Amino acid sequence: MALLSWVRETGIELVQVNGQRRYGGPPPGWVGSPPPAGSEVYIAKLPRDLYEDTLIPLFQSVGQLYEFRLMLTFSGLNRGFAYAKYSDQCSAGKAIAALNNWEVQEGRAILVCQSFEKCELSVDGLPTTLCHRELEALLLEATEGLLGFTLHASPSRKEGKVAVLTYSSHRAAALAKKALVEGNIGLFKKKVKVEWLKPELKEQLQAHGEKPPPSSVRHLGSPERVLPSSELRGALGLLGALCQRRHLGTPRFLTRCVQAEPDGWQRYWGQVVIPSCPVPCSTFLWVREDASGTVGHKRIKEAVARLALVMLGC
């Protein structure tokens, strides 16, 4: 009743679709593009009797909300977690700093942390006769933003394969999921299961030694196609000069090689922390390493520097 009264008084529109109730995305009066990656926070440990009439004003108190999504059961009850997307990354950082461990009810503190956008899908139940070239052609025809995929024996089906697909963004992965779910009968000639890659499936494949040989790993395009070198050139210098001019502090970089393939391809993770910005920038990048071992670290530094420049409005 309190929620209904609040909706009537404020005129806020809440839309319930597929197990979640959403405000905004964009909200009324929004002008411009959607917020950049890193602008969303994950909210957990919510009391089951807490709803948008309390949550939206609370999270609006630290910054402009672009979207708020409360996860619901099929009966309409709060599932205990939600997502709040802000107009920018700095507001998301403020929400984490101000509202993590906030006591929303006596003895009930909530968890607020950065939301990590999912970019990987699993497609289970593929035909055992399906080869890599056929799958690649199907995926490139049906979806956009595919960075690469691996193909494994399915751990849940005696006869069949499972593919792990990696996309360039959460949006690209979500659109791919929709396209594959709606068109899977035509694509694969049989019913397959398309879903977000679950951590337990990833661990299961690794535990059973299902890491494929180099020939079964498809990296679509060179690193320059994923992140053009023309966009990266000079990003480190530009970021350093910008931080000095705005008195933001000296950027600190963290880089690490997280995956290496026998054919020379290596996956790097990188992060840049700017003292005056509460939310760090991080990304992954595939690099074909040289003998010196320095190319990957240099490329990933340039990549995260470019992301930081975008975050700072350059």
Rank of each mutant, 00 (worst) to 15 (best):
V162D: 03
V162I: 07
V162K: 05
V164E: 12
T166A: 13
T166S: 11
Y167L: 07
S168W: 02
S169M: 10
S169I: 13
S169D: 12
S169L: 09
H170Q: 13
H170V: 05
H170C: 08
R171M: 03
A174F: 00
L175V: 01
L175R: 02
K177Y: 03
K177N: 02
K178F: 01
A179D: 04
L180V: 01
L180Q: 00
L180N: 01
G183M: 01
N184F: 05
I185S: 04
G186Q: 09
L187H: 05
F188K: 02
F188S: 02
K189Q: 12
K191H: 08
V192T: 04
K193D: 03
K193C: 04
K193L: 04
E195L: 07
W196L: 01
L197T: 03
K198E: 08
P199G: 09
E200L: 14
E200W: 09
K202S: 15
K202D: 15
L205K: 09
L205R: 09
H208V: 11
H208Q: 15
G209K: 12
K211Y: 12
K211I: 15
P213W: 11
P213R: 15
P213A: 15
S215D: 14
S215C: 14
S216I: 13
S216W: 13
S216K: 14
S216E: 15
R218W: 14
H219V: 14
H219S: 08
G221A: 08
S222I: 03
P223S: 15
E224L: 08
R225F: 02
R225Y: 09
R225M: 08
L227Y: 09
L227P: 02
P228V: 06
P228K: 11
S229W: 14
L232V: 08
L232D: 14
L238C: 07
L238T: 07
L238G: 05
L239F: 11
G240L: 05
A241E: 11
A241P: 00
L242M: 10
L242K: 02
C243G: 02
Q244Y: 00
R246K: 14
H247E: 03
H247K: 03
H247G: 01
L248Y: 00
L248I: 01
G249H: 00
G249D: 00
T250M: 04
P251S: 07
P251A: 05
R252A: 04
